[in-house]
Design a protein around this nucleic acid. Sequence first.
RNA 1: GUGGUUAUAGCUCAGUUGGUUAGAGCGUCGGAUUGUGGUUCCGAAGGUCGCGGGUUCGAGCCCCGUUUUCCACCCCA
Length: 455
Amino acid sequence: MQKPSIPKGTRDFTPIEMSHRNYIFDTIKAVFQLFGYQQIETPAMENLSTLMGKYGDEGDKLLFKILNSGDFTAGISDNELLGRNSIKLTNKISDKGLRYDLTVPFARFVVQNRDKITFPFKRFQIQPVWRADRPQRGRYREFYQCDVDVVGSDSLLNELELIQIVDEVFKRLRIRVVIKINNRKILAGIAEIIGEVEKITDITVAIDKMDKIGLEKVNEEMAAKGIASEAIEKLQPILKLSGTNEKKLAQLKEILAQSEIGIKGIAEMETIFELCKMVAVPTSIALDLTLARGLNYYTGAIFEVQALDVPMGSITGGGRYDNLTGVFGMEGVSGVGISFGADRIYDVLNSLELYPENAQAHTQILFVSFGQKELMFSLPLLSELRQAGIHAEIYPEPVKMKKQMSYADSKNIPYVAIVGETEMNENKVMLKNMQTGEQKLADIHEIITLISQKK
RNA sequence: GUGGUUAUAGCUCAGUUGGUUAGAGCGUCGGAUUGUGGUUCCGAAGGUCGCGGGUUCGAGCCCCGUUUUCCACCCCA
């Protein structure tokens, strides 16, 4: 017999773990709805043509591909098979893949369902995504993203709203966080000023690592990518900017004075900070010029959220993308959105043990079974309890009482109903409080009132 | 994809320079207690030491391969 196992980077969740996870999902969902967002879902698998080329070369490699059904080698010549060109071969034997994130499927959704959507469209989506990454701390091959996006509106009010959502979600989850914010236009302006417009991706990827590897190594990496040493030299004062958000922006304004796009980015940031001040967002928001984020479809503000009390990569991230639907043939639709990484938030919550006590909706009363007659007596009572909204169950086998009591104990069920000869004669049940050990004869209505009060 | 690391009972882990029959705690099941759990006591079941090969008189322990776990890099939630 073989030992059962699951694919690497995937996990099972027990009932307790699920109640913890649902606490996260329910909290996030409630906040999304509070701000007027509507839920959608898209299929776990998409056509590869939808997914390929949207996440860069690295992303393409990390896509899980689904083998075509039936005789998938039918249309392939022996030469092609023997050629062992796995990329070419993949295109022939697979035309579907598991989704890599929720944003690209959402863009497809918008284009395909534009007749049913009124803009601005505010949607949220909570579903798993899959990446063929090598698993490690805070990194899984299957994980949930909780996306909120607004498409069809350029207003910076949307950016504000997303910040407010982040603030509210983490307030409710009681996780202390910092919201890091930057702007792709500012990064573009910087590239322009130092004369390396072509290399903007390499520059952003390198400076994104500032926190992790430090200034020196970042400089080394940029040099290795072929960025001119004068350009790197010019970049230094920018990387060393410090002080309040306002101070940084003021200094940047001077540095980027000659860059139209840079000035535009600064203006956006100023507006966003002003709006945050106006509604008094309590979470600290830090302008972080080293924040770049990998996905290259962002064009304006970019966000990242980090937990203050647990070392963990970003637990939420997103930004503004001006033309995401363009690749699917629908031009000029701007969107902005963020994604909560539910599995990382789950890890943070686990290490801080921040779950509310009654996070799980468990059984409130268990009927023990003695035999056929008692069963006939108990079943209608069970139905009555359930109709009153009380979580009730009956032990399905007339086994030893010790066993049934242990079951109640291990499931943390607060009340046990014992029904035997004596109780049936009086049309009552023996209600035992598992915490105090007290028990008393009670009829069904007394029980309903008692348990309902305890809720 | 690159480098390192791990694997022994359902779970967490011991296991001496390579030496007879591989252990503990927890959990599970049974009993003390034929209608009363959480505490206690007694007992039982449960392992091809990840898998495959090699070295050796002899391998859980050494060597090679492979899979898996975790960590770092790349990249990312």
